[in-house]
Write a protein that binds this DNA or RNA. Structure first.
Lengths: 334, 334
DNA sequence: CTGAAAGCGCTTACAG
DNA sequence: CTGAAAGCGCTTACAG
């Protein structure tokens, strides 16, 4: 099969310990010996087997990334942020996705065991006991948008509620009182928090409260299209629509156009996420900006810190702030 | 640290070989013994260490996925297709991205060694000798859009040239003779092939050939916007614009609108990829559909077949066909 | 049906 | 500076 440390050792006329030392720069090796080993290694095209190394050193130099799904640009940006930072620290990324129920998550957690030095988990369906039962107590874990209570784990959360509150307040301040929302995927925590932000701001702003103004949806363009059609059929019609993410907003825009209405003149429309296309559609989309890339970077930085400082790592729960990206679709003429 | 097979064995009063047999269903084990082992294992929350297992069995149950970059929806769809199929076959996915020069690729290839049973490589910068020098001869590899000549490796390619040819022919058949192109990232093979498709079709169709009609760009919305502005300033102006991908087309649409022109009435616009938003922008985007998800699925299926049938696997080079997604932006009133 | 032992490819005290 | 040996956690002929 592949060439092993033993073959290099015998070709160089040294012990495998010496070969190991040369490759790890771990102990002083006499220059001549080192050269002979190097030469033998290149001639044989020796590459140390990482598995043997990992088993012996009890570390894998890998970080696991558990994602619920892989649709849209959001997740690819998370992966990108994680991977780039991981590479800079000489770690690898083990990605596993599409875990949408407890069983699948537990299986994924167990598979990660032993393969990774640390874990980033992004899953609305996870709870503390699932984590405790399926993960070694000592494994560094960072929870992304997971909503596990307490401070037993590192965590980073997006300020979903705050972001939508801000946005609704912006609409209120421009005179809107009848504001509808296209809700995100059911049982999804991001969706739930964004809805909460909407309700809180609406109530506080004394705007119209009505179940008619809340339409279910699913975080996709197609569902944004459908949900917007429903909302447009309400009487009286809302003067502004909050989509639970940008994909839905894009679908909604298409539905609004079809109905012969104009954005923002006849109806204001806003999204959430600030994905790249948001700035390029017409009208450009006012939305809540989330630093997705920064989210990934922060998560991997935190987990690597925990891996490298197993004792000196203080667990930390943080909330990533959002900011409004004001463009044309809200009609504030910004 | 973690509990090992040895502790389970001693608690159950058997040898580690027996524990191993129970967990692998590899040999008959007496029912009572099996029960005792199972019980001990659950009590101790034993999970077999995959590293030890891999080292001993000489397989990792993992497939590596090497990507050049991680921007946009294209790659997340590739990853999704790969990951889902991999999971169904009980394989894991090791993702590594952002390799944009030869050195980084070689480093990535070496890191994958030993960690994976097979490899999917998507990189415009790879060549046969880089592969041969950094990979064990026996490792199953599938090349995605890589353009390595010969039949030494499995490969799957998108029909970039054919797709653009078809599209340009469509435009020609609707009377366009002055067709511009927004070129994709320089030195990128997809970009080069799409350009080739454009040139071939233009030449064959006796349309206007001019360097003025070919504008450099970079596969992003922003660069599509800039490139389109350049193209619109040509005199005479082209009557149709071919963007090298959908993101560029979306940027171009924004630039065209700003200049006061209408799509498709004043100018036709088409893209490539058929990402989800293409159907939802206004006007909806006519583009070349690529079955991205299917691409990932095909690649992983092929590599897993090679892994499982090391000898019985016939290497295979295939080209994934594309098809036109005719919508409104080309003005063919389809 | 079960166990003792060798082996997977490495690292690292320990001794010299 | 270098080597022999134990060990990382598992699997699998081999023998019984």
């Amino acid at each position: 099969m592949s060439v092993t440390i033993r073959e290099v050792a015998s070709r160089a006329g040294v012990s495998i310990a010496t070969v190991s030392r040369v490759f790890n720069n771990s102990d002083p090796v006499e220059e001549g010996t080192r050269a002979r080993v190097k030469k033998a290694a290149t001639e044989l095209r020796y590459v140390p087997n990482v598995l043997g190394r990992s088993l012996s050193m009890r570390r894998t130099d890998s970080i696991g990334l558990l994602l619920p799904d892989l649709f849209g640009e959001f997740f690819s940006e998370v992966i990108r942020g994680c991977d780039q930072t991981a590479q800079q620290s000489n770690f690898h990324l083990l990605v596993s996705s599409s875990h949408n129920n407890r069983q699948e998550i537990e299986a994924a957690l167990r598979m990660m065991r032993g393969r990774v030095d640390g874990l980033i988990i992004m899953s609305p369906h996870i709870d503390a006991s699932t984590l405790n039962e399926n993960l070694p107590r000592t494994l560094p874990v960072v929870l992304l948008n997971c909503h596990v209570d307490g401070n037993a784990f590192d965590s980073i959360n997006i300020d979903n509620r705050g972001g939508v509150c801000q946005m609704v307040n912006h609409l209120l301040s421009h005179g809107h009182t009848r504001i509808g929302i296209l809700k995100g995927t059911e049982h999804n925590i991001d969706a739930a928090e964004r809805l909460r932000g909407y309700r809180d701001a609406i109530a506080e702003g004394s705007a119209v409260v009505s179940p008619d103004l809340e339409v279910p949806g699913e975080f996709s363009e197609a569902s944004g299209y459908d949900a917007a059609r429903t909302l447009l059929s309400r009487n009286p019609r809302p003067t502004a629509i909050v989509a639970s993410n940008d994909s839905m907003a894009i679908g909604a825009l298409s539905a609004i156009r079809e109905s012969g209405l104009r954005v923002p003149e006849d109806i204001a429309l806003v999204g959430f996420d600030d994905i790249p296309v948001a700035a390029y559609i017409t009208p450009s989309l006012t939305t809540v900006n989330v630093d997705i890339d920064g989210l990934g970077v922060a998560a991997i930085t935190q987990v690597i810190h925990a891996v490298k400082n197993r004792n000196g790592h203080a667990k930390q729960q943080s909330v990533l702030p959002t900011r409004l990206s004001l463009r044309h679709s809200c009609g504030c003429t910004n």
